[in-house]
C-alpha cells in the first residue's frame, strides 16, 4: 500500500460513513440544526461516534514516532483563537444552515445526480478560489 491507495480507500470509507450516518441527507442536517422547530438530535451521534472512536485511536497512533508511510506526523500546531478562526467558522456555519451541506456530504452526494449537490459543490469551490484571490487583503486585515 502506498499513500495514494490509502487516501483513495480512506476517501471511499469516509463517504460510506457519511451515507450510513445520514449526513448526506440535507433535510436531516436541517432537522438537527432546527432547535426551535421539530428538533431531531440524531446527527449529534455522528460526532459522538466519530470523536469517541478517534479520541482513543489518536492517542494510540501518536504514540508511534512516525506514521507508517511517512517520516513524520503533519498535525496543526497553532493554538491561538484568532479572528480568522471565529469569522471563518461563523461564515461556514451560516452556509451550512442555509444549504444543509458541509463539504464532505456535498462531494459524496454528487453521485446522486441531484443538481443541488452540483450547484453546492461548484459554489463551494468558487468560494475557496475567492478566498485565494482575496488572501493578500485578508492577511492585511485579519491576523
Amino acid at each position: 500500500m502506498n499513500r495514494y491507495t490509502v487516501a483513495l480507500l480512506a476517501g471511499i470509507l469516509f463517504a460510506i460513513g457519511l451515507g450510513v450516518s445520514g449526513m448526506t441527507q440535507p433535510q436531516k442536517v436541517i432537522g438537527f440544526l432546527d432547535i426551535t422547530g421539530d428538533w431531531n438530535p440524531a446527527l449529534a451521534f455522528v460526532m459522538i461516534g466519530a470523536i469517541g472512536f478517534h479520541a482513543v485511536t489518536y492517542r494510540w497512533v501518536t504514540k508511534r514516532s512516525s506514521p507508517i508511510l511517512e517520516d513524520q506526523f503533519h498535525l496543526p500546531t497553532s493554538s491561538d483563537l484568532t479572528p480568522s478562526l471565529l469569522i471563518g467558522a461563523a461564515l461556514f456555519g451560516t452556509g451550512w444552515g442555509l444549504g444543509g451541506f458541509c463539504p464532505g456530504p456535498g462531494i459524496a452526494s454528487i453521485a446522486s445526480g441531484n443538481t443541488q449537490s452540483f450547484i453546492f459543490v461548484g459554489s463551494m469551490i468558487a468560494g475557496m478560489l475567492l478566498f485565494r484571490l482575496s488572501k493578500p487583503l485578508i492577511d492585511k486585515f485579519l491576523p
Binding site: M1, R3, V6, A7, L9, A10, G11, L13, F14, I16, G17, L18, G19, V20, S21, G22, M23, K28, N40, A42, L43, A44, F45, V46, M47, I48, G49, A50, I51, G52, F53, H54, T57, Y58, V61, T62, R64, S66, P67, I68, L69, E70, Q72, F73, H74, L75, P76, C102, P103, G104, I107
Partner: peptide, 29 residues
C-alpha cells in the same frame, strides 16, 4: 436514526484513523 448515526460516525472515525496511522494527516475535507 441514532444507531445509524453512531455507526456512520464510527466509520468516519475509522477513515480518519487510517489517514493518521498511514500518512500522518488530519482528514479535513
Amino acid at each position: 436514526a441514532i444507531g445509524l448515526a453512531t455507526l456512520g460516525g464510527i466509520i468516519i472515525g475509522l477513515s480518519v484513523t487510517v489517514m493518521l496511522l498511514f500518512s500522518g494527516r488530519v482528514t479535513g475535507i
